[in-house]
């Protein structure tokens, strides 16, 4: 079952800058789908449209069966989002930040405790958000995105700027999220991350999807050992070496 369905999606800023030029892809229920591509390729724009922050210029977008932008209220209630470089209320504690989002998503009070437990945040519950390390801030971001028990998560570059250990922690958390039956649309430009986590990938380049496949299929196509090598070979073939 398709949980995200995008057809011929266009986004043009200020009637001139074409950020997306007719992309088509879908995300199956229960899978981790990664959008890969260089900076400025259109990954964040795609996530912003799917999470109902930005309007599409043209094309059909359905999230959990609801049309975007017409039924955005319903989408926002049902989807969790981890934006790039998430910042909470900096002088609220971890617990207060999570409680705020649980209340916004009309989650159960007990969910605050559950989320802190499942994301190993109990020890930091009274720590102000501003005093957390990058890795723990990302944990809080994920906890907040799980408020209200969403069935779909959009994660925009969730490991950017993290040290290797924190990145690994976030990977484990994403894997746990998938185990809970939550579908994930992930954007990243870390190819090792995409290879480890993704069921399927979409490669976006200059506002267009240039490949839709599994990491294994792409590696096989370019006869490479890693997704990174295969990706670089693809980019080279597109003239972006």
């Amino acid at each position: 079952m398709r949980i995200v369905d995008v057809e011929n999606l266009w986004k043009v800023y200020n009637r001139r800058k074409e950020a997306l030029r007719g992309i088509t892809f879908h995300v199956e229920s229960g899978e981790i789908f990664s959008l890969l591509g260089p900076n400025g390729a259109g990954k964040t724009t795609t996530v912003k449209i799917l999470s109902c922050i930005t309007k599409p210029t043209n094309g059909k977008v359905e999230v959990m069966g609801f049309n975007v932008p017409e039924q955005c209220d319903k989408v926002r209630e049902r989807v969790g989002v981890v934006p790039q470089e998430f910042q909470g209320f900096s002088d609220l504690t971890v617990e207060e930040n999570i409680r705020y989002f649980v209340k916004l998503y009309k989650g159960d009070k007990s969910q605050v405790e559950e989320l802190m437990k499942s994301l190993d945040l109990i020890e930091y519950r009274k720590t102000r958000f501003r005093n957390l390390s990058g890795g723990y801030k990302r944990r809080v971001a994920i906890a907040c995105s799980l408020a209200g028990d969403p069935k779909l998560l959009f994660m925009d570059e969730p490991t950017v700027g993290l040290d290797p250990r924190s990145r690994r922690d976030v990977w484990n958390l994403i894997t746990d999220v998938k185990k809970r039956g939550i579908s994930v649309l992930l954007t990243t430009h870390y190819l090792d991350e995409a290879q480890k986590l993704s069921d399927r990938i979409g490669i976006i380049f200059n506002g267009k999807i240039v490949r839709l496949s599994t990491p294994g299929e792409l590696m096989e196509e370019f006869r490479k050992q890693t997704l990174e090598e295969a990706y670089l070979a693809l980019m080279e073939s597109l003239g972006d070496a």
């Binding site: 926002r76 209630e77 934006p83 998430f86 910042q87 916004l104 998503y105 009309k106 907040c144 959009f154």
Partner: peptide, 13 residues
């Protein structure tokens, strides 16, 4: 500036 609004914008608020 802190990008908190980016997160709030994606919420039901």
């Amino acid at each position: 500036r802190d990008r908190l609004v980016d997160r709030i914008a994606a919420s039901p608020l």
